Measured scan of single mutants.
Amino acid sequence: FHVTIHVGDITFHIHGVSEEEVKKLEELVRRGADWREIKKTIEEIEK
C-alpha cells in the first residue's frame, strides 16, 4: 500500500506498507497520536 498521513502541517508519505501496518497507523491517527509517535512508527515500518 501507499499511505499518506497528514498531521497538522506535516505530511508523511510511506510506500510498501502492509495491510497490518496500515491498520496500526490508522489506529494511531484515530487516537490522536502526535506526529513524533507517528514518525517513530513509520521509521519502524520502513526498516
Rank of each mutant, 00 (worst) to 15 (best):
F1D: 07
F1V: 08
F1N: 10
H2N: 15
H2T: 15
H2R: 10
H2F: 08
H2I: 14
H2M: 09
H2E: 11
H2G: 07
V3W: 08
V3G: 05
V3T: 06
V3R: 01
V3A: 07
V3Y: 13
T4W: 10
T4I: 14
T4S: 08
T4M: 09
T4N: 04
T4G: 02
T4D: 05
I5N: 00
I5L: 12
I5Q: 00
I5T: 01
I5A: 01
I5D: 00
H6K: 11
H6W: 11
H6M: 12
H6S: 11
H6F: 10
H6D: 06
V7R: 05
V7T: 06
V7D: 03
V7F: 13
G8V: 04
G8Y: 06
G8W: 06
G8T: 03
D9Q: 11
D9A: 11
D9N: 13
D9P: 10
D9T: 10
I10Q: 11
I10M: 14
I10R: 13
I10V: 12
T11V: 13
T11R: 05
T11Y: 11
T11W: 11
T11C: 08
F12R: 02
F12D: 00
F12Q: 01
F12A: 03
F12G: 01
H13R: 08
H13S: 09
H13G: 02
H13Y: 13
H13M: 08
H13A: 06
I14H: 01
I14T: 03
I14Y: 05
I14Q: 01
I14V: 15
I14N: 01
H15T: 13
H15W: 14
H15A: 12
H15K: 12
H15I: 11
G16S: 11
G16V: 15
G16A: 11
G16F: 13
G16W: 13
G16I: 10
G16M: 12
G16K: 04
G16T: 12
G16E: 05
V17C: 07
V17G: 03
V17M: 10
V17Q: 02
V17L: 15
V17I: 15
S18Y: 04
S18M: 08
S18A: 07
S18H: 06
S18D: 06
E19Y: 14
E19S: 11
E19P: 10
E19H: 14
E19V: 11
E20P: 07
E20R: 10
E20N: 10
E20D: 11
E20L: 12
E21I: 15
E21S: 14
E21C: 13
E21F: 13
V22K: 14
V22W: 14
K23L: 10
K23E: 10
K23P: 01
K23S: 09
K24M: 14
K24E: 06
K24Y: 11
K24L: 15
L25K: 00
L25H: 00
L25Y: 02
L25R: 00
L25S: 00
E26Y: 15
E26F: 14
E26H: 11
E26R: 08
E26Q: 10
E27G: 06
E27V: 04
E27T: 06
E27F: 04
E27P: 00
E27W: 05
L28V: 06
V29E: 04
V29M: 09
V29D: 01
R30F: 11
R30G: 10
R30T: 09
R30S: 14
R30I: 11
R30N: 14
R31H: 09
R31T: 13
R31E: 10
R31W: 06
R31A: 14
G32D: 05
G32L: 03
G32Q: 05
G32T: 02
G32S: 03
A33F: 02
A33Q: 02
A33N: 02
A33T: 05
D34P: 09
D34N: 07
D34I: 02
D34H: 06
W35T: 03
W35L: 12
W35F: 07
W35A: 07
R36Y: 10
R36C: 14
R36P: 09
R36W: 14
R36A: 14
E37I: 03
E37C: 02
E37M: 03
E37T: 06
E37D: 08
E37P: 00
I38E: 00
I38Y: 02
I38H: 00
I38W: 04
K39S: 11
K39V: 10
K39R: 08
K39F: 10
K40W: 08
K40M: 09
T41C: 13
I42M: 05
I42F: 04
E43H: 05
E43S: 05
E43T: 05
E44V: 03
E44I: 04
E44F: 04
E44C: 03
E44M: 07
I45C: 07
I45N: 02
I45W: 15
I45S: 02
I45L: 12
E46N: 13
E46L: 15
E46W: 13
E46R: 10
E46T: 13
E46Q: 13
E46F: 15
E46A: 11
K47M: 13
K47V: 07
K47Y: 09
